[in-house]
Design a binder for these strands. Structure first.
Lengths: 349, 349
DNA sequence: GTGAAAGCGCTAACAG
DNA sequence: CTGTTAGCGCTTTCAC
């Protein structure tokens, strides 16, 4: 293998512009103390030579690596990829994250980490040691994993916790789960529903609880009872089927159901079909996540859209801002979710 | 910002194992000339300290960067992400590519490059200069872009050309487009079809032509005419609609259509519906790509599945093998596609 | 077999 | 405002 070296280095630029290495470095990093005309001359040399700094060298000399690591749950991500159900969480993260990174000359690297492993720290430490990223983005359920969070805080590695609300360490970016559940519930109430069932997600994810909270709050505000209307799955289709069956099997069955993710919503739709219930005429349905499959459901499902792209983009922004020494936002950052109305909700009565 | 340094370096390991830096380096890189017991002692120290080499430093000193760059078309990728139609090309690339990379201690980085830009070289040169990857993976339509290919060859940067057949430079990995189209065509012929229409894709992609070739060959082998049965779109839904309309508007309309991708197949399905043709009773349909949406179509579409995960995995393997100095495969590598039978093909007559 | 020295491309810290 | 010096952590080259 040929020993691969940088084609054009800072040295070439310095020679070309007839200045010192340091001056070139200052121009590259937009640092002060360079006379405009010198700066211009250097910039011209850079352009002429097509010079681009080596990230490795920049990192080596103790500055930024321009790398941001997005950490996702290994098992779940691989399962989604293999299932080929169209789950586009990763794509949306890339869309928001990569583009924002590119704007600032950063790169986003995708890393899979096993939540359940007893040596999460080691996995993370290895990734950090190897890549030396400038910051990490944690996604659920990692965002609230005490081991991970404590470890990163200790390393004082800047990190954003997507879908988290805890402001103790790291920078949380909430997707407004409670508000989203409230919105969905209120949407149904506005359509005349009173017995609104809720299928919660896995308790491994804190957001599951927040969504329940939002539903509860909206029901309470409307003076409605939640009695016998709450069930839970683990985000899988099968668990959704079971939960839907239990909910719809009750004597006073709900006239509407909110499912905490699309898989469980699709399962509910299937169960309704089996029970001879038409959606939306006999049962209204709202799902969470708004992945592509719900558009193709029959009927297309009304869904809560969590803007993952916007959230990832925000996360990158926050890390870069932190990197520049700017103070973190004083209050919790919330990237709001929206309700996308389709055909699975009917007016009651 | 605190000047971030490696927590544990090769120096610590050397001290811990009481050997020189060089010996540690030899162990890390599995080089010869280390006595087994020394090696063991060093390895123990590495494990005890949780040492992981910094890839920046490795790269700096002229060795591998353990980074492989996957290059995708910017516009198309972003459009897919924004459309949220469930296109999972990127996910499948990550699935195959990342996991294979991880097996060998490499990382895969995703990069978007504008095909149409007049300074593709500059974009690529910048990415290469910044990241210093050990190899690149080109995806269509980049794989056969003469500018890109020439540039990389000149840099002598190892690269795999996914979906290409040209063996002049780089390492091509074909997905067997011609064979796949042949398979689809023969599948329809076996079901009694004789007037099998074909909607080709954008001529910007060489694979569009190969697919047509496969269809032509299968038709010829069966003694069937292709007269008036070929049309083309550009892979978009709208173009598929137009093509399907032209094909189905003919006096002797086809009894089956093969569309070069899922979007155009879905468009054909929609057009058939509008014309009062039932699929599969009045029109059989086979699509290419097998992205998630076709499972959710009514009826679910029979499709050619191009195993992108397997292809990406193979691509990574080839780059790493090349990296190790192994010779490239003497013949064209083909990752075969398979036909997934669903409900959109009916027996004729 | 193992070790010492030099240097990769860049930036921090200091000097002028 | 600009330049010089000294490394960053690792691998290469060459000694032993």
């Amino acid at each position: 293998m040929p020993r691969r070296r940088q084609a054009v280095t800072i040295r070439h630029v310095a020679a070309e512009a007839d200045v010192s290495l340091q001056t070139v470095s200052r121009v590259i990093n937009a640092e002060p103390n360079v006379r405009p005309e010198t700066k211009e001359r250097v910039q011209a040399a850079i352009d002429r030579l097509g010079y681009v700094p080596s990230i490795a060298a920049q990192r080596m000399s103790g500055s930024r690596s321009y790398l941001i690591l997005a950490i996702n749950d290994r098992d779940r991500t691989i399962a989604d990829w293999q299932a080929r159900q169209g789950t586009d969480w990763v794509d949306q993260m890339l869309l928001g994250g990569m583009l924002k990174c590119a704007e600032h000359g950063y790169r986003m690297l995708f890393e899979l980490v096993d939540t359940h492993s007893d040596h999460v720290e080691r996995e993370l430490a290895a990734a950090i040691a190897a890549l030396q990223p400038d910051g990490l983005i944690l996604t659920p359920p990692h965002s609230d994993n005490p081991q991970i969070v404590a470890f990163l805080a200790e390393q004082d590695m800047p990190f954003v916790r997507i879908g988290s609300k805890r402001q103790d360490v790291g920078i949380p970016v909430s997707m407004g789960d409670e508000g989203a559940a409230r919105t969905a519930t209120e949407h149904l109430i506005a359509h005349g529903h009173a017995r609104i069932g809720f299928i919660a997600g896995s308790s491994e994810y804190e957001l599951s609880g927040w969504r329940v909270d939002g539903w509860r709050a909206a029901m309470a505000d409307a003076g409605l009872s939640c009695e016998g209307l709450l069930d839970a799955g683990d985000f899988s289709f099968a668990s959704g089927e079971a939960a839907a069956l239990r909910l719809l099997d009750r004597p006073q069955r709900p006239t509407a159901i909110i499912a905490s993710n699309d898989q469980m919503a699709m399962a509910t739709l299937a169960v309704a079909g089996r029970l001879g219930l038409r959606v939306p005429d006999d049962l209204s349905l709202i799902s969470f996540d708004n992945t592509p499959i719900v558009q193709f459901a029959q009927p297309p499902l009304t869904a809560i859209d969590q803007s993952i792209a916007a959230t990832a983009s925000k996360a990158v922004e926050l890390i870069i801002a932190h990197q520049k020494g700017e103070p973190p936002p004083p209050t919790l950052t919330i990237v709001p979710s929206t309700l996308v109305a389709r055909a699975s909700v009917a007016r009651l009565g």
